[in-house]
Amino acid sequence: MKKVSLFTLALTTAAFAHHGVASLSIAGLEGPGAPLETTSTATLPEGKMLSYAKIEDASYTKYTSAVDDEIDRTTYLMYGFGYGFTPYLSAYAFIPYYTKKREDDIGSSGFHDIKLMMALGFKYDDGLMLNPKTESLDDMEDWHFTTYVNVSLPTGEGEVTFPNQNIDFDPFLQLTFGAPSFMLGFSATKWYGDAVTLSFDTSYNTFLEHTYSNNIRVKFADEMRASGAFTYKLYTNQKSKFRLDADLEANYLKIGRDAVNGVAQDATGGEILYTTIGMRLFYNTISIGAGVKIPTWTNLNEDSDQQGAEGKEKYRAIFTFSTLF
């Protein structure tokens, strides 16, 4: 009999532009695959901890020669820790480190708001039930679901100033939303018993208004996401505990308008459909994912004025690392 290693884990966290959002994906050497961006439904084994890191580097297409206050490049690092309280309830904490640089080379860098997340896993097996402690590989072919909540706390620096630069206070370069944000999400996964896994997720994220020290009131726009992922197991070697997956995803994002002093802002918001192409490697209890995310369709509110915003990226390069212990 082959030895089954069911829980080598990977976890992905999506961070979209200035609005960082955590999503989760977990898979093993056997069992369903794990997308890079779409949240899969696996929860952490009871009593196990997960350590996680993600880098997302985005470069934005320039449409005008003017050197102005539009974002040129962002690099987001996300450190995360997870713990499986029960087979169906996992908790996570994420510590983001953001670097934002405008076209005029002015930017900010530092730890952003801490995010706390809880995920409740359940499945359909002759009825809905919470994830059991033990599942066979055949049980893993059942439809699995997760509902998750994510709260960000305003722990980042909200008074980033630029003393040697001739600019006003820029709320979009701050390292905090200034107030809590809340996200509610739902995901579903279907593994077809061998190489193919389909994953779906949707989430809604809303931000509370915050008044910065210069009396500017900012409410970042609500965000709605819906994603689908096709994961294909390319290679598995049980003896060396190695697995390689290919990943193809469609990630839809709808953003409202940011509001400053209660006024909806021009040149913000719209709809974007990203395509993510990536690979994920599992070795023992380590998972490494890498991919690129490209906007393939956009319907931005003021398209020609939204350089440096979501949907105007040349690409987003994604790299993740995670391990279970």
Binding site: K2, V4, S136, L137, D138
Partner: peptide, 22 residues
């Protein structure tokens, strides 16, 4: 206890001795 179907190990029995095979 390890359980296999058609030469493929599909899992181990849980605390109640339960395991499912498709």
């Amino acid at each position: 206890v390890r359980v296999a179907n058609a030469e493929r190990t599909i899992g181990v029995s849980d605390e109640d001795g339960h395991v499912n095979v498709r």
